[in-house]
């Protein structure tokens, strides 16, 4: 972590980083489960999946409407690295975007507010808490792979899903798409 980044961040963030720094281990969230990767944002990708960012923003980050309301598009976001970090840590008051920093709105103020100040605008609590380093990692992943990336592509999808899932098939150029009837019938 670089000190100049801290200097550029909001007062809230500085507090939260200071509060969490002592507990920060060397290995980022999810990294142990990932094979060694040359992509420095691989750890952030793991956070994006494990913290269920995909639950609303989808794998491609474009969000979209639906029963949960409209998760904003991270592809079209104008947020800076610091703002993304703040949004993940503190959530977005008055929306469904949860906060992922342990103690946010309690011992750590968010946007200058504690829980009482936030009142009905209090965002939901994330399904998991993230360490500051994980939040920075996911922000770096969003900046490197999602923000400004245009419409999702097959290459991006395959890059995100390392499994054999067919989730990426629709992004294939038409001539590459496999004939789905080929897998019908007695396949076992």
């Amino acid at each position: 972590m670089k000190l100049n980044l801290l200097a550029a961040s909001t007062p809230m963030l500085r507090v939260s980083v200071a509060a969490l720094a002592f507990a920060m281990p060397a290995v980022a969230y999810g990294q142990a489960a990932q094979p060694a990767s040359s992509d420095p944002t691989a750890a952030g990708k793991a956070v994006f999946a494990k913290a269920n960012c995909v639950g609303c923003h989808k794998w491609h980050g474009n969000g979209g409407g639906g029963y949960g309301g409209d998760a904003l598009s991270l592809r079209k976001t104008a947020l800076t690295r610091e703002q993304i970090i703040e949004t993940v840590g503190c959530g977005r008051p008055g929306t469904g975007m949860p906060f992922f920093t342990r103690g946010a709105y309690d011992e750590i103020k968010c946007y200058g507010m504690n829980r009482q100040d936030a009142g009905a605008q209090m965002p939901p609590e994330g399904g998991t808490f993230l360490r500051q380093k994980d939040i920075e990692a996911v922000a770096d992943y969003v900046l490197a792979h999602i923000k400004g990336a245009g419409e999702p592509t097959y290459a991006q999808c395959v890059d995100f899903f390392s499994s054999g899932s067919r989730v990426c098939d629709i992004y294939k150029p038409k001539e590459e798409k496999p004939d789905t009837t080929a897998s019908m019938g007695k396949s076992q």
Binding site: R166, D169, T181, G185
Partner: peptide
């Protein structure tokens, strides 16, 4: 408990 056959009826694509 062995699968005898299966068929794609719906398409998640």
């Amino acid at each position: 408990g062995q699968v005898k056959w299966q068929r794609n009826v719906a398409d998640p694509d």
